[in-house]
Design a binder for these strands. Sequence first.
DNA 1: CACGTAACGGTTGAG
DNA 2: GACTCAACCGTTACG
Length: 330
Amino acid sequence: NGRPLPNAIRLRIVELAQLGIRPCDISRQLRVSHGCVSKILARYNETGSILPGAIGGSKPRVTTPNVVKNIREYKQGDPGIFAWEIRDRLLADGVCDKYNVPSVSSISRILRNKIGNLSQPNQYESSKQASAQVGLSYNHIYPYSYPNTMSPTGTKMGSPPGVPMTAGHMSISRGWPSAHTVSNILGIRAFMDPAAIAGAEGYPPKMEDWSSVNRAAFPAAHTVNGIDKSAIDADIKYAQPSSTLSSYVSACAYSPTNQYGVYSGAAGGYVAPGHHHWQPQSPTLSHPGGGMSMHAGEIHSPMTFKVGLQQQQHEDLNSVHGLSLPTSSS
DNA sequence: CACGTAACGGTTGAG
DNA sequence: GACTCAACCGTTACG
């Protein structure tokens, strides 16, 4: 199946590993392939996140209306300007950063297709030149936006939201933002995902049974009660692009004190991203020291984001508590 | 046998 | 609304 393992299972994998259980035993116990266990643990060790990457979607366009507008202005200001000069200026003026600056060929294409007839200064006439409004919202809504270009809140995001990430890591992942960069965004969904909760109390018989499982898993869950999966999904879907929310969730979902302190000391480890509370209590699978230092920059911001929406999620996650981890008892 | 990882087919979501 | 594309997923097979 192509869908991510429920978060609860992912959690268990990391938790068991930290308890010193061997990966092969984990895979047997949780009935997950050893390859999957290996992958999740490897990722956890590398990034501190247990969350899956961002599935689906398209690579963000770099030729946003704003970029096009700037290119147009450059061209108008200096009709003889070369594409590579435009590229440099886009970088120099901060219109783009090195990650989302259009290629020279893209710029050439823009010049040719969209700005070719500069004699017509009517900016928004040609093609679907997208209004400035759309341009504005671009970074806003794009889950894949780069951390440094996407900070609608303006409060944080000096580093990727909620996820530890060194520059080196960014570069090895992909040209555009690493899946891990947005993994916390997915965390919203993953953690609200009924399947994830269902998975906590055992192995979900069928992922397809989300909606029914959901109700069973949240008998008293105010937020979910009476709302079917589609409604939830819709909420989540719209919530996702919000970096503010995602930041919060990443913090909330992995808050060791509120959510998982119950489990055990060792289990606290997986909460990793950016918590100074985190202490490798179990050396078995604790993060490499370097890994934690990567998180340092994140430490404070997630905490601040926990406040607003916490109650709601908190209770949801408490449900996770109630249902999960027969391990600790058995 | 345990483990890491590439190949594979499936799922997802933006365009 | 169906389609395409490119991302990620977990399983499987192999070393």
